[in-house]
Every structure is written in C-alpha cells, then in structure tokens.
Design a protein around this nucleic acid. Structure first.
Lengths: 188, 188
DNA sequence: GCGGGCACTTGATATGGATCAAGAAGCGAT
DNA sequence: ATCGCTTCTTGATCCATATCAAGTGCCCGC
C-alpha cells in the first residue's frame, strides 16, 4: 500500500494512527487482460490507484467505442463518475493488460472523510488536479485539427504508443483508425 | 452574501463564528456588459458566484472563439482553471449582460481552507459535482451529432436561447452559426 | 432618427475526416 | 505449425459540416 501512502502524502500529512486507519481500507484487486474494471450500468463501488498494468476508459454508443483516456502508473482508475455519484455508470473501464489495482470502497472512503479532516483536503486537491488535466484536454480537442492532436500526443506522451493499440489511441484522439494510420505514414 | 451562505450550507454546516469569518472574505464585483471577468494570460485571483447576469467562458485560437459554457443564476463563474493553479489563464470569461458577481480571493480561500476544515469538504463536494457535469458534457460531445446536440439542448436548457446569442450557443454546441441557423429552420 | 455594424439567414461550394473495401501482417488458441 | 481473429494499412468514395458569399433586419451609439 506504499503507493497509496505516497499518493496521499504528496498532498497532506497523516499521523501514524490515521495512516493505519486509512491503509486498512485499501485492498489489492487483480484484473486479467480484457476484463472489465467498471461496467456501464453498474454502480461503481470502488475507486482505484493503478499498481500495475494499463486500462482504458470509454463510452459505448450505437456499437461504437469512444475512448476517453487511459490509466497506468500510479494514476487513478475506475469509473470515477459513477463512484462519486453512486449511480449507474456510463463509462466502461477495461484492463488492456493484466492489472493490479489498489481499491477503496465508497462507504469506507466516506468514513475516512468523516473521521479524518485531512482526507477531505486530499480529495479536494486530487480533484483540483484532475480538473486541470481535463481543461487541457478540452482545449486541445476544441482547437486542434486531427493532425495537430496527433503531433501533440507524440510530443507529450510518446510512451502511450507502446502501451496501447493504435485503434484505441485513434479513438482517444477522436479519429478513426484509418485516419490515424494515414497520419502515422504522413507525419514525420 | 446570502447566496454564498446558501451555496456553502447546501453541503456543510458552519457555526455562526465560522460563517462570519467566511462572509468577511467575499466581495461584490460588478462587470458591465461586454467586459472581461477573466482574461487569458492573466492569473485569476478570484473565483465567483453569479448574483446577477450571464457570462460566457471561451478559448480563443487562431482568431476563433470556442465557447465552453455559460454562467448565470447562482452558478460558478470566472476562470477556475487559472484560479486553482494560480497560473496564467487559457480561458476568457466575458459578461454577456451587466453582471454582479460575488468573489473570493485565492489567498483568502486558502486561509479559510486552513482554518475551517468544513471548507475543505465543501470544496471537495463542489468539485465532485462539477466533475459530473463535465462527464455528461463530454459524453454528449463524443456521441451525438450536431442535430442531436441541438435537440438535447432544446430539451434540457431551452432558457439558454433567451439568455445568449445564437452564435454563442452554436459555438457551445460545436458548430458554426450557419449550421445552427439551418438546424433551427429544419428541426421542429 | 440616422448610420454602421453585428446577428441571423440562405445558397453555393469546398473539404477534413468518415466510411467502405480488401489485403497483409501479427498473434493467440488449439 | 495452422487456423481464425483482430489490427493495421492503403485506396476509393462519400458526407456532414465548414467555408464563402450576399442580403436583410435590427439594435446601439452618436
């Protein structure tokens, strides 16, 4: 659970007693490649931190899948939207590789929020950071052409190309696999 | 400042003493129609709750404006992205009508967070709610055609058509004013 | 109350990226 | 190793929406 401790202590300080209480709430879960971490229509009972593996988050609509993002390397995973509101999820989260996630139950997290004020602050700061990432992505989708979005990804996250299939990246960049393939051939 | 009190007490309870401290941090600001609440490139020192008026938030890129949303009636206003990170803003926020906003300074808010634990919780809950709205919008932009986005707006927020120009709504719905105009003629 | 400039409409044309199609290459399961 | 899937590529064609263009009306400032 060292990962969880690091993630929390980046933002707030906990006493050892508090930390023990927090640690007791987290559990390790494994998801084989291809399995669903979160399923549309189901209320997500947990939120996760990625210990190992890669997952993708996407929406299904008319038989098409639209990829919203990927989770890996200490980032958050799971359908946070469903988790927060405790209502049936609209997203799916799928393990792209065998994955090990550290998860906490919604009820347990609420209890921690109630018992340890610093956890509220942690939650706030995490969300502030997430919001900033969203803003950046929103701006890019809004203002950039397909080719510019591809170039931007190449520059900012070239490692993604190693982790995920091109079709998923294409979807994440809001284009078809064909367009993505042509860009790869054409750009650089 | 009743608006502020309501907004906070929807989420957490404060003692009268705490409330007095919070209230002292908020100030009323007026923005004449057309003026900028937040300006790209500037660090936003305040965040606002709308007491009166309508504002639009948008990005400029290559001389084009892309509208991300509107603020009115007790909702949040100002460049929250710049405010949170205290870095130069990428958005602009403009008063569409004469506006009265209740604002709090970044330093003051941090002080409240430090002195009143309930405020951290309030911040967290606010952000959780904002995130859910964003998720909904993201899904709609992802999965719906221009016509479907228009129909969805008609159903969910018909009042917007009274508050804002068609060209801003068109931009918000990710289409040109021409496309929007044609949809209006064609749909229903 | 006049004039200039937006906002909106409507039509013609252009285009970025999607869709359809077919083949090649990689890979997991048996 | 072989079969069957899925991914990736490449080409041809299509289409939703943008762009360009011109005209109308109306609102706001002087």
């Amino acid at each position: 659970m060292q990962l969880v401790r690091d993630s929390i202590e980046r933002y707030v300080k906990l006493t050892d007693v508090e930390w023990a209480e927090v640690a007791a709430c987290w559990q390790r879960h494994t998801f084989p490649k291809g399995s669903l971490v979160s399923e549309a229509g189901r209320v997500e009972s947990r939120t996760y931190i990625v210990e190992e593996g890669v997952q993708r988050i996407y929406v299904e609509h008319d038989g098409n899948e639209h990829c919203l993002g990927f989770a890996y390397g200490n980032s958050w995973s799971g359908d946070y939207d469903s988790f927060i509101g405790q209502r049936p999820g609209r997203f799916q989260v799928q393990a792209i590789t065998d994955s090990v996630l550290l998860g906490i139950d919604h009820a347990d997290l609420q209890r921690l929020y109630d018992r340890i004020p610093a956890m509220d602050r942690w939650g706030r700061l995490i969300l502030e950071e997430v919001m900033q990432g969203r803003a950046t992505r929103e701006i890019e989708l809004l203002t950039l052409s397909a080719e510019e979005r591809y170039r931007r990804l190449l520059k900012r996250s070239p490692h993604l190309l190693q982790l995920v299939s091109q079709k998923d990246i294409a979807s994440y960049l809001r284009m078809t696999p064909e367009t993505f393939s042509r860009l790869r051939a054409r750009v650089r």
